Amino acid sequence: MSHPQPVTLHRIATNGIEANVAVAGTGPAVVLLHGFPYTWRLWSRVIGPLSASHRVIAPDLRGFGGSTRAADGYDAGTLAADVDGILDALGEPSAAVVGIDAGTPVAFLLTLRRPDRVRRLVVMESLLGTLPGAEEFLAPGPPWWFGFHAVPGLAETVLAGHETEYLDWFLAAGTRGRGVPPDVREAFLAAYTGRDALRCAFSYYRALPESARQIDEATARARLTVPTLAIGAHPVGRSLERQLRPVTDDLTGHLIPDCGHIIPLDRPRELLEILTPFLAAPVEQPASD
């Protein structure tokens, strides 16, 4: 029986930036893509178990954590190219890709653009642009912070000096009040303190219209053909699964009960129970003539 492997951090040049990338284990590659307000440490409770049978690759996305605080490039397409370059640098021709929150559109676009490279896709707790299926979730209006974060220069000016209070609200709401482990909380707070760190985080929201356009264009040209798993919790539920259903050939949906938005920290055991067999299943090869 293989055991969890130690995590090592790597500085990897990709697509005009340097990415901070956590790597652990050997075997088939699996890429883990975080969202806001997290870093690669979002995956702290699942990297160990996954590394017993996979090479786990968990980058800080552009502008987040230890990666370059770039001036631009926060649209999902550019972020997908960043990940593509990380796989090149690590010598991985293919990988399973897992995304949550802001990492979901990145994982989705990478898979649509590079179906030769992505063996399996897992997406969680996010929406994919304006694809149909999320009408019920959006009926009361989008989450309040989307508009606040989208105004250029506003949120980072207002929040500088109050990052702890602001992030703690998201960490409590995303775990239904249970909170995240203290060491992970401290890592998140360190990563999101200061106006420039906040600017990078909010640049993702400012790029959402461009990301939505990229998603519309990609789904107009191609379907998701790789095995895909959509995992929901509170508050997104099955909205992402409903968006994916019309554009995906092989889709499985799961809903984790009594689980907040921050699935990998709130319910890591339940996530692993779903994720591990999905990642381990062989991909069927087309029959040869």
Rank of each mutant, 00 (worst) to 15 (best):
H54F: 10
L271V: 05
A95R: 02
R62H: 05
V122N: 02
A71F: 04
A70P: 02
P142Q: 13
A160R: 04
L208T: 00
L224A: 12
V7P: 00
D75A: 09
Y74K: 02
W169F: 14
Y74Q: 02
A107L: 14
S44N: 10
P182Y: 11
A134G: 11
P257L: 07
L138R: 10
Y166A: 04
E165T: 09
P132Y: 02
Y204R: 00
R269D: 15
V247G: 04
Q243N: 08
L255I: 01
P268F: 08
Y74V: 01
V123D: 00
A220I: 10
V247A: 05
A207E: 01
T193F: 13
Q214M: 13
A201K: 00
I215Q: 05
V226D: 12
L121P: 01
L79V: 13
H261T: 03
G35D: 04
E210I: 12
I263Q: 05
E270N: 10
D82L: 12
D82Y: 12
H54W: 06
M124C: 00
R55E: 04
G27H: 05
P209G: 04
F146D: 04
G129N: 11
G73T: 08
L131I: 11
L50H: 08
L224W: 14
Y38V: 02
L154F: 15
Q214G: 07
D168V: 03
R206C: 00
A197L: 06
D289K: 12
A280G: 00
W144L: 05
T193R: 14
V98F: 13
R199E: 11
G99V: 13
R120G: 07
T252Q: 14
A281L: 11
Y204K: 05
P37I: 02
T111K: 04
H34Q: 10
V151R: 14
P93E: 13
A201D: 06
D72T: 07
A172G: 08
P143V: 02
E156M: 05
P115Y: 12
L138T: 09
Q5E: 15
R221I: 07
L109H: 06
L229H: 02
A212S: 15
I100E: 03
R242H: 11
A220F: 07
R223T: 15
V106D: 08
V151A: 14
T14R: 06
G161L: 02
E165F: 05
E135F: 09
L128Q: 08
R267M: 03
P152D: 14
F146Q: 08
P140G: 10
A187M: 06
A80M: 11
G27K: 09
D88N: 06
V122H: 09
R269E: 15
L128W: 11
I263Y: 01
G129I: 11
S211N: 11
G25W: 01
R11L: 13
I263A: 06
W43I: 04
G25L: 01
R238I: 06
E241T: 07
T219Q: 09
I57F: 06
V31M: 10
R45N: 14
G177Q: 09
